[in-house]
């Protein structure tokens, strides 16, 4: 078996808050092979962004030292991610807020390249113009000297994608990169990402709320609930026959498929007050007394894994 590009094992992240220790992530495990793509879905607040921040080494100030392992290309990332900068490209959620308004967009990206890509500044400029062309930014050469506010939201996200690719990464990490954009632009950006990832053979870790996006962009999916992996498997299989009750409900209330506007009853528990046993049991239609007693193990079944012993029981 080849070495995975990214391997996360037993990752736990906690935050010190005014209400005590918030356990944001708990025993999270996932892997991405070279060139593979993994989508991460789950309700708001379930820890998707925190997972990405742990991998990128930019956890918020109050975070305790994460436990578990994160390995990128076989090397540890948890002790410090600086060595991997440039090899992991990051596309943030909000293109409007992610560029510093008082510096030229080109200079901001060139600074990243100066630190993490070989070559002279002239090389970098040349390469960046090429990248701007690749992400279909209008007037790529002139774009280098413009300020962020001179670009539209979609163009800014193209800039940020170019920035993510600037140091020839092996892995691309994106946190809902299109939620701040309008629908047409969303589609264009996603198409662009899909093409670039395929062309360059990049690994992809992609956070999204959108199952449609998931199906087109990711070959595997991890469903997070309250900081834990509820279900993991090939995207098609999970979307066609979701096993975990949470995944089933999540899919059922997705706008594209929903028969009612009901949503999942209840809310994600506060990270400072996680329920005992299975964290989903208070909201689960299949819950039994045993579910509150002990947390379920992640059962591996072929290519898939699910953290629910009752995954074959249909909803009554």
């Amino acid at each position: 078996m080849t070495q995975p590009l990214l391997a996360v094992e037993g990752l736990a992240v906690a935050l010190r808050t005014d209400h005590g220790l918030a356990r944001i992530l708990d025993d999270v495990a996932l892997t991405i092979p070279p060139g593979g793509s993994l989508g991460v879905v789950g309700e708001s607040g379930c820890g998707k962004s925190t997972l990405l921040r742990a991998i990128l080494g930019i956890l918020p100030k109050g975070a305790t030292t994460p436990s578990g392992r994160i390995r990128f290309q076989g090397r540890d990332l948890l002790a410090g991610a600086d060595w991997a900068r440039g090899r992991i490209g990051f596309v943030p959620q909000d293109p409007y807020l992610s560029l510093n308004p008082v510096f030229r967009a080109g200079d901001q990206i060139l600074e990243i390249m100066r630190r993490h890509a070989p070559g002279s500044r002239a090389d970098h400029r040349r390469k960046l113009v090429e990248l701007f062309r690749a992400v279909q930014l209008p007037e790529p050469a002139a774009a280098l000297d413009k300020y962020p506010h001179q670009f539209s939201g979609g163009q800014r996200q193209r800039l940020l994608i170019a920035a993510a690719l600037a140091c020839d990464p092996a892995l691309l990490i994106a946190d809902e990169p299109t939620t701040a954009l309008d629908v047409t632009t969303q589609r264009e950006i996603l198409g662009l990402l899909k093409r670039l990832v395929a062309e360059r053979g990049l690994g992809l870790l992609f956070v999204t709320h959108d199952f449609g996006v998931l199906a087109t962009l990711c070959d595997r999916v991890a469903v997070l609930y309250a900081g834990q992996v509820a279900e993991l498997g090939p995207t098609r299989a999970v979307l066609d026959t979701p096993w975990h009750p949470y995944t089933r409900l999540l899919l059922a209330c997705h706008p594209d498929r929903a028969t009612t506007l009901a949503g999942i009853p209840g809310t994600v528990p506060a990270a400072t007050a996680q329920p005992s046993g299975c964290r989903f049991h208070p909201r689960c239609p299949l819950a039994q007394p045993a579910c509150a007693a002990a947390p379920p193990a992640l059962l591996a079944l072929g290519e898939r894994a699910v953290a629910c012993p009752r995954h074959e029981v249909p909803f009554g």
């Binding site: 921040r53 990128l56 930019i58 600086d82 900068r85 440039g86 990051f90 943030p92 909000d94 807020l97 992610s98 560029l99 510093n100 308004p101 901001q108 600074e111 990243i112 630190r115 993490h116 940020l160 920035a163 993510a164």
Partner: peptide, 17 residues
């Protein structure tokens, strides 16, 4: 607190700079 600082850290800006 701004997003662009978080982004710059993720992208690998030097601390001093």
């Amino acid at each position: 607190q701004k997003d662009f600082v978080l982004y710059a850290r993720a992208a690998g800006y030097g601390r001093v700079r």
